[in-house]
């Protein structure tokens, strides 16, 4: 990366992962959770989101553009690392490795998920409870979504940890350690939210 833009790109990458992409993820998981209250509740919630004013602007600037930058620059970051968790089996080094692995898995998952829902909606399909129930009639897809959701949530939670370090919020080893517990708590909590939604369609 020429012209000393690397610092800016890295910080932008870190910021976009939390705001807006991370916030969107949490909102998405919460809306999905309506599925646990039945078909009608889910359909109402998803139609409310669908009918938000300025939908295309919101989608472009809160979801797709930030996500695209985060994904492409993230791939570049992931592939410039020479992982060595086998030789240096420290906890944080494993998290470093898992952050990169989960990033790639999440990218594959999201690409497929966008194709299956948003692009299909553009092609005229109706995105509702029934659509997800149809997808999950295939046991392989249940497995794929479970892996995808857990990987996404992990990448977000652990990304919050490194966000706090990258911006100089958590400096002391103690604050970083506490943040590890907080972010892993977020990982578990959001995983439950995500998995409950998946099983509500099955």
């Amino acid at each position: 990366m020429a012209d000393n833009r690397e610092f800016f790109y890295r910080r932008l990458h870190s910021l976009l992962g939390v705001i807006p992409v991370g916030l969107f993820l949490v909102q998405h998981l919460v809306v999905n959770h309506f599925a646990t209250r039945g078909e009608e509740a889910f359909n109402n919630a998803s139609h409310f989101m669908e009918n938000l004013p300025f939908r295309y602007l919101l989608e472009a600037f809160i979801i797709f553009l930030p996500l695209l930058f985060h994904a492409i620059y993230g791939l570049y970051i992931a592939f410039t690392a020479k992982n060595n968790a086998g030789r240096y089996g420290f906890f944080r080094n494993w998290m470093f490795f898992l952050q990169r692995v989960s990033g790639v898995i999440t990218l594959v998952f999201i690409a497929w998920h966008v194709w299956e829902t948003r692009i299909q909606a553009m092609l005229g399909a109706n995105v509702d409870y029934q659509m997800m129930a149809d997808i999950f009639s295939n046991p392989f897809m249940i497995g794929f979504y479970i892996v995808g959701v857990i990987s996404t949530v992990f990448h977000f939670a652990n990304g919050l940890w490194s966000f706090c370090v990258s911006w100089g919020i958590t400096i002391s080893p103690r604050s970083q350690r506490i943040m590890t517990f907080v972010t892993m708590g977020i990982f578990v909590a959001l995983s439950i939210v995500g998995l409950r939604a998946i099983f509500a369609f099955v």
Binding site: A2, N4, E6, F7, Y88, R92, N93, F97, S162, S166
Partner: peptide, 16 residues
């Protein structure tokens, strides 16, 4: 600048 601080990926192997 390029190749600087922002390249740290927080694996924390260094401090260990």
């Amino acid at each position: 600048g390029d190749g600087g601080l922002a390249n740290c990926g927080n694996s924390q192997n260094c401090v260990q």
